[in-house]
Write a protein that binds this DNA or RNA. Structure first.
Lengths: 338, 338
DNA sequence: GTGAAAGCGCTAACAT
DNA sequence: ATGTTAGCGCTTTCAC
């Protein structure tokens, strides 16, 4: 295991100049004679020199690693966000280091504790939906590690946050339902306490109110994000004294769960019960009838989050800011009335 | 950005002992007085000491980073593999560094070239399906960086390889089809040149031969892995002089594409045309009829790959080996004849 | 414009 | 069992 890589020392020796000059030439900082500079660059290329991040990191107190902490990557939204993050990180020469919490606040805390802060230049996080204090994040920020939250943001922390327009997306979803003639609209929501869950709820409420449609308490159910919760929530909805004629689901997985439940109960989707989801997961086009949904700009959320974080890391004065990306209604069969 | 972390020097000063002793105590190597050791450990805990990986890495010439290079993470199989990798890496204190090739051999090569080898202790890779030399991998191995291939392995390279039993899985899939009474079985395969594509093809062939069923050339189509290729391949299959009565797809996405095409052509899935996939992607249960498939042990592939790699990194003599994990037939509606 | 040398945090001889 | 010191590869004062 004793491999040796080319170092600036090697280059210096070959060129019979000092390591300091090589170092300066390589980074094009300070005044370096353009000729020597070219010489060094050429030699470095020729010798296939690669900087040793441990060494630069040790000096600069940085690592070129950015951490990502998120609940899971085995679903469309998160895996796409990660792809977006990876894209810009790679391009800018940063490694991404992945931590998966399985949506456990416990695990999240453990990760943060274990985290050798010296080994990470910044953090991209989407919080777990389990209730839990968020002090640990404050602590990290206080330690000088910038954090950018995406999608599932921690509400009361002063840090950059990238979201999609959950309120507006929900509003348009419900308005679309109303436009199709549905009147008794239910909402199967995510766990309460998560900001985007609440935003979607607010959008739902606002649209209903705007169109003077009543919302029964029994039409609103908070539960988890999985398909199975969608199924269960729907079964529960079918027991309501006043049965709803449409369901706005907080995400596509729950919407699909709802559809499965309805199909099993032989309730016609579209005619008897409209369904709309959120995300635009590819499965929307696979299920029959196809699922109307609100598209989230997942890739863009990933890219922007990473760009923001890199700015926080590299710019002296880059204040925390929030970015809300637009969503887009995608109409398919599950909300077709005829 | 001038944050200061606790160092062993700080601990040494507090305890009025030397840094060497602190270092030794912390790692429980060499002979250290148990009392001093406890003292150091307690103090480290108290001061919230975290080792600086840049420093250890610089000395040990390692980084505690392992790289993953794969075509994409936005599908069920790969995102699950990554989850498995992350699980064991995290547990063993390694960071995972993600590189996504978008299935481009070009990009793959770029990544490998850009890769600062000093910044990675080992590599987990699933090669792109685009044709391309694999010499670059040889080079990396020659440089002393261990590589473990998973799923899409490079055939002619001497390195550890983790796969699922593609041959056996395919064999059982086809045998199941035959057991259901299908006789004219087509195979919509992946790009040729990929080992697992070939293995599945061989399993298909062997089962057909074993049961003395003819295989027409026109029943075998090689193309890409996406749903859309599945759709197109199927449309093509429907033009055959002798139309097949069942399709074995190389993966679930192509199987789903096939189903979509068949539904559009109003061909009854199951009765008129049996379909079986490979992977056991959650969408198998979403599509209607539900899709019979061969389950791949994705999580386990990820875990094992990472374990193997860590062994290569840390054990002196851990020779390259191949591991084949079992698959499992999951029967659903798409192969029900009646 | 360039070189010498100190030092980032840690480990590993080498001493004692 | 513990201390001293050199050095990993690099950046950055401080000289010249």
């Amino acid at each position: 295991m004793k491999r040796h890589f080319v170092t600036i020392k090697d280059i210096a020796r070959e060129l019979k100049i000092s390591v300091a000059t090589v170092s300066r030439a390589l980074r094009d900082t300070y005044d370096v004679n353009q000729e020597t500079r070219q010489l060094v660059l050429r030699k470095a290329e020729e010798m296939n020199y690669k900087p040793n991040f441990n060494a630069t990191g040790l000096v600069k107190n940085s690592s070129h690693n950015i951490g990502i902490i998120l609940p899971t990557i085995t679903n469309y939204y998160f895996s796409t966000v990660v792809t977006g993050i990876q894209e810009v990180a790679y391009q800018r020469g940063y490694n991404i280091v992945l931590y998966i919490t399985n949506d456990s606040a416990e695990r999240e805390k453990d990760i943060l504790n274990d985290l050798s802060l010296g080994n990470i230049d910044g953090l991209l996080v989407s919080v777990s939906s389990q209730p839990g204090q968020n002090d640990h994040f404050e602590q990290i920020i206080a330690d000088g590690i910038p954090i950018v939250f995406f999608d599932r943001v921690a509400p009361d922390i002063k840090a950059s946050k990238i979201m999609q327009d959950d309120y507006q997306g929900a509003y348009e979803a419900v308005e679309h339902l109303i436009g199709q003639g549905y009147k008794k609209i239910a909402h199967i929501a995510g766990p309460s306490g998560l900001l985007f869950t609440e935003r979607r709820m607010e959008g739902f409420m606002a649209a209903m109110k705007e169109h003077r449609l009543p919302v029964k308490d029994e039409w609103i159910i908070h539960s988890g994000f999985s398909m199975d919760f969608g199924r269960r929530d729907t079964l529960q909805l079918l027991q309501c004294k006043t049965r709803p004629d449409a369901i706005f689901a907080v995400n596509d997985r729950k919407a699909v769960g709802a559809m499965l439940a309805l199909k099993q109960q032989h309730i016609n989707i579209g005619r008897q019960m409209g369904i709309i989801g959120f995300t635009n997961d590819p499965m929307c086009e696979i299920i029959s009838p196809t699922l109307t949904t609100v598209e989230e700009p997942a890739l863009e959320v990933g890219r922007k989050s990473c760009e923001f974080l890199l700015n926080h890391i590299n710019k002296k004065n880059f204040p925390p800011q929030e970015l809300t990306l637009p969503t887009k209604l995608i109409v398919r069969e599950s909300t077709r009335r005829k």
